[in-house]
Amino acid sequence: MSTLKAKIRADLTSAMKARDKDRAGTLRMVLSSISEAEVAGKEAKELTDEEVTTILTREAKKRREAATAFADGGRAEQAEKETAEAAVIADYLPEQLSAEEIVDLVSKAVEQTGAAGEGMRAMGKVMGILTPQTKGKADGGAVAAEVRKQLA
């Protein structure tokens, strides 16, 4: 069992003992998503910490998007619930990169690929270098937006 999955399972037990329904519910949903990913495909497999982090990132993104949609729809209470769930999931994700760190990484990648003069055609090259560096540490949309800004 991956250490991250074991930590989530242990924290679920602690949350249940503390009668923290919101945290326990969120951790149950996350463990359910992890289990679902383990049995998806032709044969069941044990996920690595990196694969669990990918699932956590996807779940956190779902919560952020849902919170935005609920807030735009005038359902503040539901938006707060989704935001709280995203915060619980964020506890298990690696430290997120700041905006300045993203700008710095993008400028280094543009420099490394020599893509400064090529414009938007070079976006694939630059993103190819950045994606492994930022996976799980930054929102892909934010990274792509910064790449577009620097290549424009």
Score class of each variant (00 low, 15 high):
7 K>W: 00
7 K>H: 05
9 R>E: 12
11 D>R: 14
13 T>G: 02
14 S>P: 02
14 S>G: 11
15 A>N: 15
17 K>S: 13
17 K>V: 13
17 K>T: 14
18 A>W: 10
21 K>M: 09
21 K>G: 10
22 D>E: 14
26 T>M: 09
32 S>E: 14
33 S>K: 12
34 I>N: 01
34 I>D: 01
36 E>R: 08
43 E>V: 10
44 A>N: 04
45 K>S: 11
46 E>S: 14
47 L>T: 00
49 D>N: 12
57 T>F: 05
61 K>R: 12
62 K>P: 00
63 R>Q: 12
70 F>Q: 11
73 G>S: 14
74 G>Y: 10
78 Q>S: 15
80 E>A: 14
81 K>I: 13
82 E>S: 06
82 E>N: 13
83 T>H: 11
84 A>E: 12
85 E>W: 07
86 A>F: 04
88 V>M: 11
90 A>I: 02
90 A>Y: 01
91 D>T: 14
91 D>Q: 14
94 P>K: 02
105 L>E: 00
106 V>Q: 06
107 S>P: 03
109 A>D: 00
115 A>H: 14
117 G>K: 08
121 R>Y: 14
124 G>T: 13
125 K>V: 10
126 V>K: 11
130 L>E: 10
131 T>G: 00
135 K>E: 10
138 A>R: 02
138 A>N: 03
138 A>G: 02
145 A>W: 02
145 A>P: 03
